[in-house]
Amino acid sequence: MSRSVTASFLAGLLFGLGLILSGMANPAKVLGFLDLAGAWDPSLALVMVGAIAVAMVAFRLASRRQHSLLAEPMRLPGKGDIDRRLVLGGLGFGIGWGLAGFCPGPALVALGAGELKAAVFVAAMLAGMAWFELLERPPARAA
């Protein structure tokens, strides 16, 4: 197994531990943040603050490099347009997030914890992603 694959695995593990520690693997807690009109739990905002404070330094360092420390190409997103897709995608994602209290990372962590409902959400999410692929890149038809 290459070093970069090992690094990916460890990053995923750390990410998952962070989601558990922060309470964000629990949809009830996420919904407590999204429910501004109820008893509001601001915890999610602090998760963002902690994550961004650290990641911001890393992305600054990364933006000055052509290659990663393991000699992989540095793949930073370019300056894309702020278009209808971006806004509609964001709005649609927020609706699903608000309905279930799950976004993709926490759903995968909850699935790993053996939650049946998380498995159902993840299966539907993968179907949604596959649906996008079909719409975006229809399989080539035989001539």
């Binding site: 750390l14 922060s22 603050v49 990641a55 992989e72």
Partner: peptide, 30 residues
Amino acid sequence: LDLAAFTPASSLAGGIFIGLAAAMLILLNG
């Protein structure tokens, strides 16, 4: 505010873990 549910320390710490994971992935793997 739901002060009973609010977990500032563990949420901030968990966020830092998430930030470190993102840092690892970009700095090691790009």
